[in-house]
């Protein structure tokens, strides 16, 4: 499935494995969380990057142990109205995880901006909408009221814009 990442559409070169699919000798693989638990020992030795498909009802604490080794976390959206993964994504980012965080399943163009803001950086997009629609929808709003969100170029948060000139260090007499 094509991916939307960093403002362009790319091919997904990760190999997605089910619970029992044979593991290839090398290559980037992404496995369900249950498999990660079961085969952690052998997976850590895998020649290639490792990713996990988390589910909506798993708790973020459960990932802590594995995080340093993970290069991809996939959070599925069982339906586009199920918003649990927005919170999970933020929780994962709050642990300091800095690599790829992907939204999969039922994702709509009009939701991509919210997803970017909570820390997702790649999206399985299917072929329902054109690339242009995805890209346009991902920058619908130029401002957000909340601070500390992930931002794309051209996007700002109201608080920082509003209080820019009032930043205390600008008033420091010894500055420079």
């Amino acid at each position: 499935m094509p991916l939307l990442k960093n403002g362009s559409i790319i091919i997904d070169d990760w190999i997605t494995l089910g619970l029992d699919d044979p593991k290839p000798d090398s290559g980037d693989i992404v496995v369900p969380y249950a498999r990660l638990l079961k085969e952690w020992e052998s997976l850590t030795d895998h020649d290639g990057r490792l990713g996990v498909i988390f589910t909506n009802i798993d708790r973020v604490e459960a990932l802590t142990l594995f995080l340093p080794r993970l290069a991809l976390i996939v959070l599925p959206f069982p339906s586009f109205t199920d918003g649990r993964a927005y919170s999970l994504a933020r929780q994962i980012r709050e642990t300091g995880y800095g690599r790829e965080l992907r939204a999969a399943g039922n994702v709509l163009p009009d939701q991509v901006q919210f997803m970017l803001q909570v820390g997702f950086d790649s999206f399985e997009i299917g072929d329902r909408f054109t690339a242009e629609v995805w890209l346009k929808a991902s920058r619908q709003m130029s401002l957000a009221y909340q601070r500390g969100l992930y931002r794309t170029p051209g996007q700002h948060d109201v608080w920082s814009e509003r209080h820019r000139e009032a930043e205390p260090w600008l008033e420091q007499p010894h500055a420079g």
Binding site: D82, G83, M115, M141, Q146, V158
Partner: peptide
């Protein structure tokens, strides 16, 4: 009002 407006995390609540 401002904080909750288009809050990206809380726009698809149960």
């Amino acid at each position: 009002r401002q904080w909750s407006s288009l809050h990206p995390e809380f726009s698809y609540l149960p």
